[in-house]
Amino acid sequence: MNVLDKDLQQLLASDLEFNRFKDTNFLITGATGLIGSLLIKSILFLNSEKDLNVKVYAIVRNLEKAKGVFGELYNNERLAFVTANLNTDSIDVEDKIDYIVHAAAVTRSKILVEKPVEAMETAINGTKKMLEVAKRDRVRKMVYISSMEIYGRVDSSKKAAELDLGYVDLTNVRSGYPESKRMCELMCNAYASEYRVNVTSARLAQTFGAGILSNENRVFAQFAKSAIDDKDIVLHTEGLSEGNYVYTMDAIEAILLLLLKGKNGEAYNVSNPNSHITIKGMAELVAQNFSKGSKVIIDIPDDSKKYGYAPETHLWLDATKLESLGWNPKNNLTESYAKLIEWIRENS
């Protein structure tokens, strides 16, 4: 078995009541992204192992990309692709939907800076369309995939619980990302209040590990690839921001748990409290543990603003609320990187 197969076996052995998903239909957006694709692969695996008789409708914009992401699973009889642009197209599926996970979002920092209007429109319009489906079909549960970035600048003397929102700079167009995430969470709560839509928000920390896509180029992947090649790890900021992380399969287990137990109209931090470190500290951890001699180099470009790097933050997420539902993350930062690097090597 490869490392992802082992993760799926570990998911299967969890205490989640998977039988509650029996004979249901899922609608998942962002299906070719990291969270969406892993969630779909996990559900299809559980369907096969547990004979759940589920059907997954996966919303994508590009079927060719979907073929590359899903491989042999692309033709799985329990998986149906819906081609749509969430910003402009209507969403129509042939069956009544029981569960929705809305994971689609514009996340590339460069696009968030160069096309902030379109990025915000996609976030808000896409979320509203999913909530309308949830309202129409009276879904059992919808989980909105939010982000730790909604916290902005908070009191760094304590861990940030779900009500501890801070300052977001509205003069910076990059702030369209956290601000639209806030608006989408509020829209979810409005639908919960006015239309009794059963919806929960999952505020994900930076998520990585086995299952990342081949074109992944975020900081965690750059660090891993540099270590594999024994190249220096280059930071384009001082690396003083505090990062919060969660392993891929731990995040998938959290989302499935929220589909079963998340409280209506509430948000939950999805972050491993033992995987909190500065960006520079993480780079040094990778260099020391997974390379033969890589060094950490700081090289800040003169025009760094145009790349849309997130502002320096000092944030430590409190996962107590999610843990109270029974979530127990199993992979710390070092273990997450070990599996990530194993996955990259297996798929290189």
Score class of each variant (00 low, 15 high):
Leu16Pro: 02
Leu16Arg: 08
Phe18Val: 14
Phe21Ser: 03
Asp23Lys: 07
Leu27Gly: 03
Ile28Asp: 06
Thr32Trp: 00
Leu34Gln: 12
Leu34Arg: 06
Ser37Asp: 00
Ser42Met: 11
Ser42Asn: 13
Ile43Phe: 07
Ser48Thr: 08
Leu52Met: 07
Val56Pro: 01
Ala58Glu: 01
Glu64Pro: 00
Asn76Lys: 00
Glu77Gln: 06
Thr83Val: 14
Leu86Ile: 14
Leu86Ser: 04
Ile91Ser: 12
Glu94Trp: 06
Ile100Tyr: 01
Val101Arg: 03
Ile111Gln: 06
Met120Ser: 04
Lys129Ser: 15
Arg136Gln: 14
Asp137Glu: 12
Ile150Ala: 11
Tyr151Ala: 06
Gly166Ala: 10
Leu170Lys: 08
Arg174Thr: 14
Glu185Leu: 00
Leu186Asn: 15
Cys188Gly: 14
Ala192Thr: 01
Ser193Asp: 15
Leu204Asp: 12
Gly209Ser: 08
Asn215Met: 15
Val219Thr: 14
Ala221Leu: 13
Gln222Asp: 14
Phe223Leu: 11
Ile228Ser: 05
Asp230Thr: 02
Asp230Met: 02
Asp232Glu: 00
Val234Glu: 13
Thr237Gln: 15
Gly239Leu: 03
Tyr245Asp: 07
Ala251Met: 03
Ala251Val: 05
Leu260Trp: 08
Lys261Trp: 11
Ala267Phe: 05
Pro273Val: 00
Pro273Ser: 05
Asn274Ile: 04
Gly281Pro: 05
Val296His: 03
Tyr307Val: 13
Gly308Met: 12
Thr320Ile: 00
Leu322Gly: 08
Ser324Phe: 02
Lys330His: 02
Asn331His: 15
Asn331Ile: 03
Asn331Arg: 14
Asn332Glu: 05
Thr334Tyr: 06
Ala338Asn: 14
Ile341Gln: 04
Glu342Tyr: 02
Trp343Met: 09
Asn347Val: 10
